[in-house]
Amino acid sequence: MNALIDARDLSVNHPGADRPVISHIDMHIDPAEIVTVVGPNGSGKSTLVRALLGQVALSSGKVERLAGLRIGYVPQRVHIERAMPMTVRRFLSLPLRVNDAQAAQVLERTGVPGLESRQIISLSGGQFQRVLLARALLNAPQLLVLDEPTQGLDQPGIVAFYKLIEEVRAETGAAVLMVSHDLLVVMRASDRVVCLNGHVCCQGTPQAVSAAPAYRALFGAESRGTLALYRHHHDHDHDDVGHVHEHVHGPDCAHDHAHAHDHAKG
């Protein structure tokens, strides 16, 4: 099985910064898997995603994307200028025009049917995120990339959104790469979790990562919540935590960002 994206030894420097934003990251995304990148603020999550998409210059390493890979992208914090009139229907036709049937179908799929004639700026946060996801689903993507897709949603909205992502994956077979800090919810929805803090601290199945010392050091009190979640929901197989790739820089993760647990309130 060919990986959709295969990145080796990825590093990115921002001009003027004394440390690389991300350094020496190896990462791959296989077809139909849901991979979630978690990490504190400033850990390079968005930079990693943009490097994988080829939107930022690399200072080392290389990214191989499957030839002709179709990507559906939901960026972080999309802000539509109030000065720009824009219906949902028109928005779905940017930049490639789609017909009414296609537009109706993706809106139906993301649980917001019939919104076509509404103005984008009049939508609620949850509706807008679903419209963004609908737009990303046009043109049959093989990979969905979602950068903090649940910002501004309340807890039930977050849970419902991740459920939708899983449904979409099951239906279309698209792989999903997500950046998130909704630790509790995202852990359940992911096949693989990458814990990032400039470098990969640890990665593996959600169970494995939530038990990893580096992850717990990075997220402090909140990580106990996810571990408890797995103890609670998976107490039959809790001994089998799977295989975790723990990074040697574990302690560094801890002391750099020991204060960072409060960012992830979701």
Partner: peptide
Amino acid sequence: ASVNEELALAS
């Protein structure tokens, strides 16, 4: 590009 630069980049 006027709606959102990141959406544009990704396209």
